[in-house]
């Protein structure tokens, strides 16, 4: 169902001459943190640039919270974008960079100053903000770009590889910031190739490959739909051999493997729900089960099943 507060791609295609950017994208992205993953050239940046109005669709339309990028005066009060480009106007300090573009919004000098400091403090750059950006580390440049993107308090924040170059502490702080913004009701759309962080960051994931959206939604729901790869479940129990012997005869179980430490099993099943019911039944018949955990319903596994190896995202 499409809402007026969603980011909507309505049959959007983008071609660069003969080269396909993205093709027939239909999406409705609700507020929250959404991760965009896919290999290089899959169309992630094209999709983000179209939300930000830096590119125009060759076909279809992009509507964000009911507005189109052509309505610049209203649209860009709502949208903030931190691009992948590690480039800045020459000679500016961190503070000047945030402040000078904030002035384009038409704020008074006092409000501009207040919003600039608020954003700079939110990304933890108060001290270095008086220094020229040319002397910043990669992580600091990422954060000052983020400050510039959030300074006008946008409802829709689009971030192209925002965690690149950040040290672990800054990474954790930045992720916490994304989650705080999402909790305030904002859209936070992030492209990333670090798949193990996708589960941590996102409410939803959009997977892209060769210009097409190959899957979208919550990871678990996406995993359930990949029928050609049976679900893997890791079980820790007191009698793994006995459990294995009971599972072998069940038709929804495809494969059972005993752990090297002989304290657990890895089971591959066609139906997770059916399997969990079965397991409950078995647990009542003499097997003490310590833990049951899905082993491949994370973003990385889903990505590998749908697109290929994680290496291809880099």
């Amino acid at each position: 169902m499409i809402h007026n507060h969603d980011i909507v791609f309505d049959n959007v295609s983008k071609f660069y001459g003969e080269v396909l950017g993205v093709n027939r994208v239909n999406l409705s992205i609700p507020p929250g943190v959404t991760s965009l993953v896919g290999p290089n050239g899959s169309g992630k940046t094209t999709l983000m640039n179209m939300i930000a109005g830096l590119l125009r669709p060759s076909r279809g339309q992009v509507v964000t919270c009911g507005l189109k990028p052509d309505d610049a005066e209203n649209y860009f009060r709502m949208v903030g974008y931190s691009t992948q480009y590690d480039s800045f106007p020459r000679g500016l300090t961190g503070y000047e960079f945030v402040e000078c573009y904030l002035r384009l919004f038409g704020y008074s000098a006092k409000d501009t100053k207040r919003l600039a400091w608020e954003a700079i403090e939110r990304v933890g750059l108060r001290e270095p903000s008086a220094r020229r950006i040319a002397g910043y580390s990669k992580g600091m440049r990422q954060r000052i770009k983020l400050a510039q993107a959030i300074a006008h308090r946008p409802r829709v924040l689009v971030l192209d590889e925002p965690l690149n170059g950040l040290d672990p502490l800054a990474r954790a702080e930045t992720i916490a910031l994304f989650q705080a913004l999402a909790a305030e009701g904002s859209h936070v759309l992030i492209s990333t190739h670090i798949l193990h962080e996708v589960d941590l960051i996102s409410d939803r994931v959009i997977m892209m490959n060769q210009g097409y959206v190959v899957a979208e939604g919550q990871i678990r729901g996406m995993r359930d739909e990949i029928s050609e790869h049976p679900m893997q479940v890791l079980i820790r129990c007191d009698k793994p051999e006995l459990l294995a012997s009971k599972l072998f005869g069940e038709k929804q179980v495809v494969e059972v493997r005993l752990h090297a430490d002989r304290a657990g099993l890895l089971v591959r099943t066609r139906s997770a729900d059916g399997f969990y019911k079965l397991l409950n039944h078995i647990a009542l018949n003499g097997v003490q089960i310590e833990s049951v955990a899905p082993a491949d319903d994370d973003a990385q596994s889903v990505y590998e099943y749908l697109i290929g190896t994680e290496e291809s995202t880099k």
Binding site: A52, G53, L54, A72, E73, N74, Y75, F76, R77, V79, G80, Y81, T83, Y85, S87, F88, P89, Y101, L104, F105, G106, Q148
Partner: peptide
């Protein structure tokens, strides 16, 4: 650096 202008409500 042109995109900084194009991303402002101008």
């Amino acid at each position: 650096s042109l995109h900084y202008y194009l991303l402002a409500p101008v």
